[in-house]
Simulated assay, not measured.
Amino acid sequence: MDIKNIVSNGFSLNDLEKRVSSFAFFSLRTAINSYFSTYKSSKHFFGTILSDNSLSQLESDFQYGSDYIEKYAETIIHFQHFIELVCKEILRDKHELLVLKLDKKHELFYKLLFKEEVDSSDLEGINTTEFTATFERMCELIKTGKLDSKYDFFREQKNVTVIKQLNNLRNRIWHRGTFVLRFKALDLFIGRYILPLIIQIVKLPEYKKLDNLWKYTPLSYPIDPLKDIIDECTKENYDTGKVAFLKELGRAAYSNPLNPTFKFFNDEIIRRSERMVEAEINLVTYSEADKVYNCPVCGVESLISYQDSEREIEEDGSYSSYFTFCWYIKCQCCSFEISNELNNPKEYGYDLPDYWYVIEH
């Protein structure tokens, strides 16, 4: 099979009677999951992010690893891709020609103009307008009443600025690949500006029933990470730790293997998770597994806490004090995991156990 046959061996969503929104919402899912994953990708230096330390900006920036950079890039690129596809779909619903470049495709232009039947293969390889031109065209048509007033929120100055800045960040990744938002700046940009716009889009009548394409499985504990991240990031002094906690809840919700419609498979997954918990508890390691909690994400009794011990040594070599503390928890089912650089959930306003403790002996 030669390369032309290989790259043509696929299927068209149009042939399956799916709209471009399918791809758009797959991108949205990737964008949100990638953003949620920026806490996990930064755990090795999260203490530096939280603390006011003496490191220079250059020293602090040097700690950002490839995992964070990868998740940052996926976040920006896929949020921009989602919004671009939505805008083009809005224009396509009015007329296909509003988004296509057909400078030399005269017969195709004629057929589309007069709504004659066009085979999907005739549209393959046809370029669409650049996003900036697409967005400006859509806003102008909304302004002049040519598009439904339900899209008016796109023209609000705040959203126009947000979309332009998102596109600029995407271009800086796509064309140069040299600029990365720092952790807190990314939180504020996504939580304060991007996510509120995303919520406005997904509430449009044509998209309200598409949650299954992009949203995570509901958490066992009644928290909606997206809503709470937006609420926290709109505060003047947002709590970085709380948003990190919410991001990890959301990331694990995407990884939750339990499906409410498949009880048989769920039971097997839960049994396997419980066996893993038992094995972990019985395994003697440097940091011993200790307590087991009900996981706030998947609801399985598989959230293990790990403890460590420290001793204070006097000059004569004797121990003056000895204490044990929990430093890390991880769910054996959905993979939810946080360390004690974060506060206990109650300090963030959630009625969950105090995972972090210190016992003096």
Rank of each mutant, 00 (worst) to 15 (best):
N294E: 14
I270H: 02
V180F: 07
D148M: 00
L352V: 03
S34Q: 05
E130I: 14
L166G: 01
D187M: 00
F26P: 00
H361L: 15
G65I: 08
C295G: 06
I329R: 01
L188H: 06
I313E: 07
N237Q: 11
Q307I: 13
R176H: 13
F135Y: 15
I83S: 03
P345K: 01
E136I: 11
S309C: 14
N127C: 05
E301Y: 10
V277D: 01
Y306V: 03
K111A: 01
P205G: 01
V358L: 10
N53V: 08
L303A: 04
K208Y: 00
L283T: 14
E136F: 10
A279L: 13
T217C: 06
I32K: 03
L13E: 12
E232W: 02
N9W: 11
C334P: 04
N159F: 14
T128V: 08
V180T: 15
A73Q: 15
E314F: 14
I142A: 07
Q63P: 01
I359M: 10
K146C: 08
E278A: 13
L249D: 01
D15H: 13
K101Q: 14
V162W: 05
C334V: 09
Q165S: 15
V160Y: 09
R155K: 14
F153L: 11
S287R: 15
W356H: 10
K143F: 07
L108M: 07
D67H: 12
K115D: 09
L141E: 14
D231Q: 09
C298F: 07
Q307F: 12
K346N: 13
K203T: 06
Q165H: 13
D267M: 08
S27E: 09
S120C: 07
V20Y: 02
S34C: 09
L210F: 05
D67R: 12
C298S: 07
Y322W: 15
T285F: 04
R271E: 15
N14K: 15
K18E: 11
E74R: 13
C295Q: 07
L50E: 10
E17S: 15
E314Q: 14
M1K: 07
Y322I: 09
Y355H: 06
L219V: 04
N237T: 10
C326K: 09
S56E: 09
Y238D: 08
E89F: 12
Y328F: 15
R176Q: 12
L112F: 11
Q200L: 10
G47R: 15
Y68V: 03
D61P: 04
S42W: 01
Q80I: 00
L342P: 02
T128L: 05
M138G: 03
L342Y: 05
E84N: 02
I230G: 02
A279M: 13
L283Q: 12
F153N: 06
K203F: 00
L85T: 06
G65H: 08
M276C: 09
E278Y: 12
F11Q: 09
